[in-house]
Design a protein around this nucleic acid. Structure first.
Lengths: 203, 203
DNA sequence: AAAATTTAGTTTCGACTCGCTACTATATTT
DNA sequence: AAATATAGTAGCGAGTCGAAACTAAATTTT
C-alpha cells in the first residue's frame, strides 16, 4: 500500500482511473483503436439479441452515431459480419468472424487479464465483486444499467419440450429457446432477478 | 456476481475497462476534458519536485508535447500557476491555484470516490490493494513505474537539526528537507523501499 | 385504417485530441 | 570547448467523438 495518505476510496478511484487510462492507451495495436477493441470484445460476449449497433452504443455509453461508425469500420475490415435481423427489418445482427476470433487472441487486453491473474484467486474474486458493485453504483447515477447474463435474469424461464420434463431454457421476453452455452452471454435486456442464489439456476 | 460465466480475472479486466471508460467519458464537465482533469488531480497530489510537465507526462503515459498542451490550457484558464524552477532554468514548477482548488471540489471524479465509499471499509481497502498490485504489474510491462509517496521511498532520510535528535525528514535524492505534510505526496523519483513495515516510517 | 410517434441505423460536419517531428534553450558529460 | 542529453514548446495531420439531420421500418394512437 503505497498510497497511505489518502482515504482508501480515493485510492480506489484513482487506481481505477489510471488502470482505465492504461487499458485505453495501449489499445492501438493491430490497427484497431480502443473503441474498436471494445466493440469486438462486446460482440464476442453479447447474446444474439444484443449484437446490434444500438445495444453496443448503450453498453459503451456512446451515441448510436458513434457506435455506427465504429461498427462500419469493423465490418469493412472483415471483423464483423452483418446479417439481417430476424424479426425487424431495420436492424442487423453483427457476428464476429473467424478473423476477429484470431485477432482477439492477441488482444492487448490480455495483459490485463494476466495482471489480474497474478493475484491470489480469492483476492481476485473479491476484486471482481467490489468493482462490480462500484460499476453498478456509477451506472445507476447515469440512468444506465450494467448488462448481465441470463443465469441471473428475471426473464429466464424453463422450456418444457413435450413431456420429458424440463429440458431447456428460454427467454420469456424474446419468447425464444436458449441453448445452454448462451446462458453466459451478456444481454441488453437483462433485469436482475431478486434473491437469486449464487450460481443456482432455479425458476 | 452477475458474470459467472467467465473467469474472475477476465471479469476484473472487463470491469476495469468499463469503469475506466466511464471515468473518462464523464470528464467533460466544467469545460475541462479528461486529460485536463487528470492533470489537475495530478498537480494537486504531486510533491514539489514532481509538479513539472515532464513528470506529468511520465505519470500519464503520454508524450511531453501532449502534456505541454494540456498544461498550457490549464495555465491559460487560471487553474495552474507557472513558477520558474529553483535549480533548473529550463524548467517550471506548476502549482494549482485557488480557483482550481474550488473546481476540484466539483470534480466529476468525486462520484467514483463516493461509489467506492459505499463498499464496506474492509472490502474497499482490499480493492485498493488488489488494484494497486494490478497496476504495478501492468506498468512494469511497459517499463513505467507507479509514482509513490515519500513514506515508502528509499530516498527518505532523517534530518538531524543541531542536536535535538531526529526532528524532521529529508529527501536524500534532492538533498532537501521535507515537511511532515509533504510525505503523503506522490513523486516521480519514488523508489520503493525494501521491507517497509506497513505505515511505519523508520530509517 | 390512417396518422403520429418511436426506434434502428446511417451520414455529415465540426470541434477537439493526441502523437509525431522539429525546434530552442539550458544542463550535463566528454 | 564540444558533444550530448534534457525541459519544454510549436505546429501539423490523422483520427475520434458527439450533435444534428435524415431514411426507413415498427409501434401506438386516433
Amino acid at each position: 500500500m503505497l498510497e497511505q495518505s489518502s482515504s482508501p476510496e480515493r485510492a480506489v478511484a484513482e487506481l481505477v482511473e489510471q488502470l482505465g487510462h492504461c487499458a485505453c492507451s495501449d489499445a492501438f495495436s493491430a490497427g484497431l483503436n480502443p473503441a474498436q477493441w471494445s466493440a469486438l470484445r462486446y460482440f464476442e460476449r453479447a447474446n444474439r439479441f444484443s449484437r446490434t449497433v444500438s445495444a453496443f452504443a448503450a453498453y459503451h455509453g456512446t451515441t448510436r452515431g458513434t457506435a455506427s461508425q465504429t461498427v462500419r469500420v469493423l465490418v469493412q475490415k472483415g471483423y464483423l459480419r452483418r446479417l439481417p435481423a430476424m424479426h425487424d427489418q431495420r436492424s442487423f445482427r453483427l457476428d464476429i468472424t473467424e478473423l476477429a476470433q484470431q485477432e482477439l487472441g492477441s488482444d492487448p487486453f490480455a495483459e490485463f487479464v494476466s495482471a489480474a491473474g497474478t493475484l491470489p484467486p480469492e483476492q481476485c474474486s473479491a476484486l471482481a465483486r467490489g468493482l462490480r458493485a462500484m460499476l453498478e453504483q456509477v451506472l445507476e447515477k447515469r440512468a444506465r444499467r450494467p448488462f448481465g447474463v441470463c443465469t441471473t435474469c428475471e426473464h429466464l424461464g424453463a422450456l418444457d419440450d413435450k413431456r420429458d420434463g424440463r429440458c431447456g431454457h428460454r427467454c420469456r421476453l424474446q419468447d425464444e429457446a436458449l441453448a445452454e452455452q448462451e446462458l453466459g452471454r451478456i444481454c441488453v435486456d437483462h433485469r436482475c432477478r431478486k434473491n437469486h442464489l449464487s450460481g443456482q439456476t432455479r425458476y
